[in-house]
Structures are given as C-alpha cells and as structure tokens.
Amino acid sequence: MHPRRDAMFAGCVAIAPILIGVFPFGVIAGVAAVEAGLETIQAIAVSPIVFAGAAQLAAMDLIGQDAAPVVIVLTALVINSRMAMYSAALAPGFRGLGAVRTAVGAYLLTDQAFVVSIRRSTTSGGDLDVRFAYYLGAAISLWIVWQVATVIGVVVGNGVPPEWSLDFAVPLVFVALLFPALKDRGTRIAAAVAAVAASSFTGIPLHLGLLAAATLGITVGVAAERGR
C-alpha cells in the first residue's frame, strides 16, 4: 500500500484532460514572450518565475507595447488576484502543512489545480499528507506541461515568419478564456462594459485605459448584481 503515491497518481489522472487545453495556451505564452521582444532566456524564465498563464500573456502583450511598468505589474497582479479566493478555499483543508509545503503548494496553485483538488481537499477527511499528495500530483503535472509548452512556444516564436501573424494568437487566447468566465449576469455585464470601455479608452496614455476599463466593468457588474 502506498497511499501517498497512489493519491499523487490520482491527481495526475484527474488533471490530465485539462492539460490538453493548457498545452496550446502555453505555446502561445512562449510565442508572446518572443513577440514582445524578450531575450530567449527571459522568455523561457517567465514561466517558472510567474507560472500564471493569463497574467503572463497580458504582461508580455503590454511589455511589447512599452506600457508603463506600473501598469504592466498591476495588470498581471489584478488578473492573478482571483487566486486569493483559491488560497482561502484550500486553506482549511491544508491547515498544518508546515512552511515549506505551504510555500511550494502556493507556488503551484493554478485555476486548474484548484478545480481538481478543491473537493478532495475540503470534503474528504483522511490524512493531510495524502490530500496534499493528490494536490501535488495535479499541480506538478500542470507545471511540467506549462514549462514544456512555453519552451516550444519560444522556439516556434523565434522561427515563424511575421507573415503568419502568430501574434494574433494572443488576443485569441484571451477570447478563448473569456467565454468560460462569463458564468452569469454579473460577469457578462462586467465583460461587456469593460470591452466597450477599453476600446473607447485607447487614447489614454501608458495603457492606463486597460485598468480603467476593467475597474469600470467590475464596478458596473457589482452594481448590477446589487440591484437585483
């Protein structure tokens, strides 16, 4: 009997179908880093250092346009702020992990690892080590796929001629991620307002229009949900 090893393997199996969709996303993240003008070593280093797809893509997009550094950092962190929710939701089930495993577990936290692990980590009782092993199995699988995919993207991005317009894959990935995020009236209103506002605010310097549009969308979305 190897309960920890079995749980780790079960975590890998549980996240496997999701990884098929993560792979092309990772390739585009690698392409985006090259398109933005990063050196090869930097383009590869972004993935292990940041390890957050949408934020990486947004940051690369903004770096490529020479947006203000503050806007680049804020945009990436605002996109990742949702992870505070995951952190809070996982915390009760992972109480007592210790500093090192908490630090490593946090580093590996993604939308996908969260979705796969949340039920197991909070509802099933049992051994903390086994629950954490399951989480690690899922989270590390995604980490490996993400690193491999972005390296491939960096290689591809360096080799593909500009006529292929591969840079267009970046907004396409945002479109692909946007629609699953439109879960109800509030999210749809927030997205619609933010989209119209962002296209209207392109004259605002330093790409501050992006953050202004997102803030407006969120504000209107919250107000619309309150009004019901």
Binding site: A54, A58, T75, V78, I79, S81, R82, F174, L177, L178, A181, L182, G186, T187, R188, A190, A191, A192, V193, A194, A195, A198, L210, A213, A214, T215, G217, I218, G221, V222
Partner: peptide, 8 residues
C-alpha cells in the same frame, strides 16, 4: 468579476 472584466 475580475477575470471576465480584465480579459474583455
């Protein structure tokens, strides 16, 4: 609401 608004 943040992912929807920022992605859009």
């Amino acid at each position: 609401l943040i992912p929807a608004a920022v992605l859009a």
